[in-house]
Computed example of a mutant assay.
Amino acid sequence: MGWFAQGVFGICDFQFWWSVTNQITWWSLLAYATVAGWTDVRSRTIPNWLTSAAFVAVMGIHVFTGAALPAVAGFFVTGMLFLMPTILKVWGQGDWKMAMVYGAGLGALPTVFLWSLSMLVAKVGNHPISIWSRKFMTNSKAASMPLGLFVLCGTAVAYLAVSLCTAFR
């Protein structure tokens, strides 16, 4: 598989799921999603410094493992795939940048799957969050949905699902 196809279809090799590089990539994305989810719930923003640090960490992992070109391809393809919802204000630019970091870490299609899973989780979990938001936030910020929190939930669910599937095969 060429580097561009690897960037689109997935950088993490599920045949070697328990390899150190796969685990470091997933755990760094989980750490990023945890902090991004926390700040997104509190202020409805994902700071640029956090996204930049996560991108540098993910790219550092892939440069170390020789997968820098697929990571760059995943970053740009994810950016193009998620550009239209960002323009249509389905989510904010911080969420778009977060998706591109995931694209660099996992590849474009796994990121699309993960974000689809996160949007399903958001449909279920949005009601309690909106009640909390109306109680503690201003009206303009309370109306928006903290997608970073749901991406954290989707990432955790996907990680556990793949871990369980690979552990019992």
Rank of each mutant, 00 (worst) to 15 (best):
W27I: 11
W27V: 09
S28I: 03
S28G: 04
L29E: 10
A31V: 13
A31E: 12
Y32L: 15
A36Y: 01
A36I: 03
T39H: 08
D40L: 03
V41C: 15
R42T: 02
R42Q: 13
R44I: 06
R44V: 05
I46Y: 04
P47I: 07
N48A: 11
T51K: 00
T51H: 06
S52I: 13
S52A: 15
A53W: 11
A54G: 11
F55R: 04
V56S: 10
V58H: 03
V58C: 08
M59K: 03
M59R: 02
M59Y: 08
M59C: 15
I61F: 07
F64D: 04
F64T: 13
T65L: 01
T65F: 07
A67M: 11
A68C: 11
A68P: 01
L69P: 00
L69S: 02
L69M: 14
P70E: 05
P70D: 06
P70A: 10
P70V: 02
A73W: 03
A73H: 05
G74V: 03
F75K: 00
F75E: 00
V77L: 05
V77T: 10
T78E: 07
L81D: 00
F82E: 06
L83I: 14
L83T: 07
L83H: 07
M84H: 07
M84F: 11
M84E: 10
T86F: 13
T86D: 09
I87L: 15
I87D: 09
L88Y: 14
L88C: 10
V90E: 13
V90P: 03
W91C: 09
W91L: 10
Q93C: 14
D95S: 08
W96E: 04
K97S: 08
M98P: 00
M98H: 07
M100A: 11
M100Y: 10
V101W: 06
V101P: 00
Y102H: 12
Y102A: 12
Y102K: 01
A104S: 12
A104L: 11
L106G: 01
G107D: 05
L109R: 05
T111I: 08
F113N: 12
L114F: 13
L114S: 06
W115R: 12
S116Y: 09
S116L: 13
S116W: 11
S116Q: 10
L117K: 00
V121Q: 01
V121K: 03
K123C: 13
K123A: 12
K123G: 11
K123Q: 12
K123P: 00
V124Q: 01
H127M: 09
P128A: 11
P128L: 12
I129V: 14
S130H: 13
S130A: 14
I131S: 08
W132H: 05
W132C: 07
R134N: 12
R134H: 13
R134T: 08
K135L: 15
K135Q: 15
M137D: 09
M137W: 04
M137I: 07
M137T: 05
T138V: 12
T138C: 07
S140A: 15
K141C: 02
K141M: 09
A142K: 02
A142H: 05
A143Q: 13
A143G: 06
S144N: 05
M145W: 03
M145E: 01
P146M: 09
G148W: 00
L149D: 00
L149P: 00
L149F: 14
F150L: 04
F150G: 02
F150M: 06
V151G: 01
V151H: 08
L152T: 03
L152A: 07
L152M: 14
C153D: 01
C153L: 15
C153V: 09
T155S: 14
A156T: 13
